[in-house]
Simulated assay, not measured.
Amino acid sequence: MRLERYFKKPVAILFGYHDMGCAGLQSLLEAEYNVVAVFTHRNSDSEEIFFDSVAGQAEKLSIPVFFPDNVNESQCVELIKQLKPDYLFTLSYRQELTEEITQAATFGAHNIHASLLPAYRGRSHLNWVIINGEKHTGVTLHRVTRQKDAGPILAQAKVTIEKHDNALSLHKKLVQMTRARLPEWLRGLQQGTLIERIQDERLASCPGARQPDDGLINWKKSAIEIHNLIRGITYPWPGAYTMAGEKKLIIWESCIKESFSESQPGTIISLDPLLIACGVGVLEVKRGMCGEVRDSEAGAIVRELKAHCGMLLV
């Protein structure tokens, strides 16, 4: 058991962003860590801001906040060393820390990753688990090492992916799970009661960051695959899309119909409800964006597209 718990609060630096960064800051304070600095990112004008600000939370608590373009530049490294942290924690932080930074902490650097490692390392794990039709995901506390998301695991918690979940609802579940379990894990880390276990590389996967073209719907795929893509990147993510002539249709919400069609995949086979033939099965479009209106129901989409039965989406 680490005796520093009984003499002083352990000094921590948080590298965090988004709702997960906020959950991390709240959990550190609940677990009685002395957070001496928060490193985060400025919001981008091109990004849909639907999440809380860890910078705003830290500033209300008079915790110094830094927004470095490159956290690994010498000025930042020296500042981190001067703060003499016991622990470093990363949650949804978009820059990788060099060993010079991670080794500045007496008891090392740790990360919360929103998947059940070693599965779904890297970026966009939230989206990929839905796109790939997984039934479970979770959050993992692990030690930071040279290989991204591959360090020894100290704790995990599983989250069920329900059929009705989309990227936003699953994101909220993962944040809630982190907020519920992280204080307990942080206390265990401080007391030395968490046992590290090496990740099994045979179970490792890293789908990689999503690219814009990943959202293009391939109607030759099955209705279930297309439905999973739609719910995996629905608003406030960019959304799965298709083309109707020169018009772009982003689909926010869909459902699978238990029916069969011999029509070419991508063919509109009904206007009310709006049904599209897939490689296997039929998909109903319930909500989407076509033209200037961000969120339209199927009837408005039909009118905007001037859709008709037999029209082909590509």
Score class of each variant (00 low, 15 high):
Arg2His: 15
Lys8Cys: 13
Lys9Met: 14
Ile13Trp: 10
Gly16Arg: 13
His18Ser: 14
Gly21Ser: 09
Gly24Thr: 00
Leu25Arg: 10
Ser27Trp: 15
Glu30Tyr: 12
Ala31Asp: 05
Val38Glu: 02
Phe39Cys: 07
Glu59Leu: 07
Lys60Leu: 09
Ile63Gln: 00
Ile63Pro: 01
Pro68His: 02
Lys81Pro: 14
Leu83Gly: 01
Asp86Lys: 05
Asp86Thr: 11
Phe89His: 09
Thr98Met: 12
Ala104Met: 05
Ser115Ala: 10
Gly122Tyr: 07
Ile131Pro: 09
Lys135Cys: 13
Lys135Ala: 15
Thr137Gln: 09
Val139Arg: 06
Val144Pro: 06
Thr145Tyr: 01
Lys148Thr: 15
Lys158His: 05
Ala167Arg: 04
Ser169Gln: 06
Lys173Met: 05
Gln176Trp: 11
Arg181His: 15
Leu182Cys: 07
Gly188Leu: 05
Leu189Val: 06
Leu203Phe: 12
Leu203Ile: 06
Ser205Thr: 06
Ile217Asn: 02
Ile224Glu: 06
Ile226Gly: 04
Ile230Ser: 08
Gly232Arg: 07
Ala240Gln: 04
Lys248Asn: 04
Leu249Trp: 10
Ile251Gly: 02
Ser254Val: 02
Ser254Gly: 03
Ser259Met: 09
Ser261Trp: 00
Leu271Pro: 00
Val282Cys: 01
Glu284Ser: 02
Lys286Asn: 05
Lys286Arg: 10
Ala307Leu: 04
Val314Gly: 03
